[in-house]
Amino acid sequence: MEPNGTISTNLRKGVLEYCVLAMIGDGEMYGLDIANGLHGQGLLTSEGTLYPLLARLRRNGQVETSWRESSQGAPRRYYTLTAAGRESLAAFTGVWNDFQQSVSNILNSATGDPR
């Protein structure tokens, strides 16, 4: 039997980049806050893995970065979505809703749950 940890790891890998896009949303976020938010939702076990992902999203043109002064000292690098990032997130959201519904229907029919 496949361990629960492996299942959740595989699921996380598929959705993490879209969750990052969704967390940033219409605002702007700092790396540590994105990491804490994802970690709090159980979507990021090692917070360091966020940074290769953010670098990849930036190279792909889905997020962009800007520097802003911080009240606590050093300037911070903030992430915002680009138009391509918003499109990507919207496309995923559409697919995810159908996908989630299909998986739920199959799982419920297999377990006899009428929902």
């Binding site: 700092y30 790396g31 540590l32 990491a35 970690h39 076990t45 090692s46 917070e47 360091g48 893995t49 966020l50 940074y51 290769p52 953010l54 670098a55 606590q72 000292g73 050093a74 911070r76 690098r77």
Partner: peptide, 30 residues
């Protein structure tokens, strides 16, 4: 990005260095 993360996390003063580094995962995990 990782340097910034460590620096900012430590500046918040909520966790010791070892905990901040542990939360990042070991370098292979990153």
């Amino acid at each position: 990005g990782v340097q910034e993360h460590i620096s900012e996390d430590l500046s918040r003063g909520n966790r010791p260095v070892s905990e901040v580094l542990a939360s990042l995962g070991n370098p292979d995990d990153v």
